[in-house]
Structure formats: structure tokens, C-alpha cells
């Protein structure tokens, strides 16, 4: 028994160290984002605490030798791309998972082909797409060649999420709807979809965040108009400044607000049901 207790302690401390390892760079990044500017560099010690680099990100700082991050347009591009990717890959993920609910010949091949999209490294796919685009003679753009690869990448995630949801789905409610004379299409809209909706939301969340942060696939195929991650990658070559850290902190906050929207949507969908129930009560009595 003693052995188990000491093992518990060892593993507990190990896990704590692990969490510190995961978060260490973030803490450092957070601290350094408040470095004095524009002279202060991305390293210790902190010369003086300031919000200079945050102002710099928003273009509010007085002009200096350090170029502002090219965020404006790149950010809008990234968000548009992520949104379009989210819609297309979630729709395809739901359709494919729906097809997988019934066994069919060749399901193994289709399954692994779809999964391949998330497994093949981005560099390879990007390279292949560039070669293909050159061959066929189409231009590379973030909204064309990069977009289709984003979908190839996020669609398997949406598919897997929906597959897991459908695995726990009770088909008898759909049969009940059909036997009440409701067409298969309307059954899907009125019964299946409302029940799987939380799963669809998480599939959308997955697709959006993956696409928003996607970069190896976009690097070759995105063309001359850069997305956010490509803009950041561009700063690798030159000297980095704490404005990148300030931007990191901001984008993390943005991600959390996205997460919060997801949470709110989920709660709302539950509350709406309850509200409809109570609204009816007032109606009847």
C-alpha cells in the first residue's frame, strides 16, 4: 500500500512539472510582452514594464524602425478562410459520417482515405498541390488552392467527431419518425440534426481552430496574399520583437473568446428547449 501512495505522490509531482513544462513558455511570453519598447528586446531582464508592444500591434505606437505586424488584412483573410473551411468540412463530415452508419462494401478504403487527409504532413500536401497547380496551370490563392487543402485537413476531424457521435446515436427515434409518415430528409432535419447538434458544434470548433492556425499547407499554396500564420512565419527569418509576444497573448485571448462562444451556443441550445417547454405551458393553462 505504501508503494502505491509514494507512486501517487511521484506521479502527482511529475504531472505538476509536466504542466509547468507545457505552460512555461507561455508565462515567459506573457511577461515579455510587457517589455519596454521600442528598445527592449525579446529577452530578460525586463527593462521597464509597459504596454508599448500592445500599442504597436494595433498600430497605435509612434513609428519606429520596427515594422508593424502585417495583421489587418492577414487576420481578415485567416478568419474568412477558417469560416469557409469550417462550413465545408463540417457539412462533408456530417454527410460522410451519416453514410458510415450503415455497413457498405469498401467502407475500410473510404475510411482510411479520409483519415489520410489529417495524416499526410502539410508540407507534402502543399508541395503536391503546387506541382498539380503548376501542371494544370491555375494560380495559387488563399481562397482556392489553400482553401481546398484546409478542407482536406479539417474534414477528417469533423468526420471522426461525427462518427463518434453517431456511434452513440439511437436509431429507433429516426424509425419512429419515418413510421409517423415523415420523409427521410425531414426526419434528418427535425430529429437527427437537433440531437447531434452538440457534436456538430464541436466539429465546427475543431475545423475553425485548425484552419485558423494552419500553416505548412498554406505556405506553398497561399499565393502572395498571406494569412496570419504565414505573416508570423515571415518574421522568423528576421529578428523577432516582443510585439509578436503581445500578439500571441492577444490571439490566445481571441481563441478563448471563441471557446466561450462555443460554450454559450451550447448552453443556449439547451436553454431554448427548456424555454419552449415553459412557453407552451403558459399557452395552455
Amino acid at each position: 500500500m505504501d508503494k502505491v501512495v509514494s507512486l501517487r505522490w511521484f506521479l502527482g509531482i511529475f504531472t505538476a512539472a509536466f504542466v509547468l513544462f507545457l505552460y512555461g513558455p507561455f508565462i515567459v511570453m506573457g511577461i515579455l510582452s510587457f517589455q519596454q519598447g521600442p528598445e527592449g528586446g525579446p529577452q530578460f531582464p525586463i527593462i521597464e514594464w509597459s504596454t508599448y508592444w500592445y500599442q504597436h500591434v494595433f498600430g497605435l505606437a509612434p513609428p519606429s524602425r520596427i515594422a508593424p505586424l502585417p495583421i489587418g488584412e492577414a487576420l481578415i483573410r485567416s478568419l474568412t478562410l477558417a469560416f469557409a473551411t469550417m462550413v465545408v468540412s463540417t457539412v462533408m463530415g456530417v454527410l460522410t459520417a451519416q453514410a458510415f452508419r450503415q455497413p457498405f462494401r469498401g467502407s475500410g478504403v473510404v475510411f482510411y482515405s479520409v483519415i489520410l487527409g489529417m495524416i499526410v504532413p502539410g508540407v507534402l500536401l502543399g508541395l503536391g498541390m503546387v506541382l498539380l497547380a503548376n501542371q494544370v496551370g491555375i494560380d495559387r490563392n488563399w481562397w482556392s488552392t489553400a482553401f481546398v487543402l484546409h478542407v482536406v485537413y479539417t474534414y477528417p476531424f469533423a468526420f471522426l467527431v461525427m462518427l463518434a457521435i453517431f456511434n452513440r446515436f439511437d436509431e429507433s427515434v429516426e424509425e419512429a419518425s419515418l413510421s409517423l409518415g415523415v420523409s427521410p430528409a425531414k426526419t434528418f432535419r427535425k430529429v437527427t440534426f437537433p440531437i447531434i447538434f452538440p457534436g456538430v458544434l464541436s466539429a465546427m470548433l475543431f475545423a475553425f481552430t485548425l484552419s485558423y492556425d494552419e500553416f505548412p499547407r498554406t505556405l506553398f499554396t497561399g499565393g502572395s496574399d498571406v494569412t496570419m500564420p504565414i505573416a508570423i512565419y515571415g518574421t522568423f527569418a528576421v529578428e523577432i520583437h516582443p510585439n509578436l509576444f503581445a500578439f500571441g497573448v492577444l490571439s490566445t485571448l481571441f481563441s478563448f473568446s471563441l471557446l466561450a462562444v462555443y460554450g454559450i451556443l451550447l448552453t443556449l441550445s439547451i436553454r431554448r428547449q427548456n424555454q419552449r417547454a415553459s412557453g407552451l405551458q403558459e399557452d395552455i393553462t
Binding site: 419518425s177 409517423l180 409518415g181 415523415v182 420523409s183 425531414k186 427535425k190
Partner: peptide, 8 residues
């Protein structure tokens, strides 16, 4: 449900 959504 059936009354509202049935085909026929």
C-alpha cells in the same frame, strides 16, 4: 410531430 411533419 407526425401531424406537423408527415409527407401525406
Amino acid at each position: 410531430f407526425g401531424l406537423r411533419h408527415r409527407v401525406i
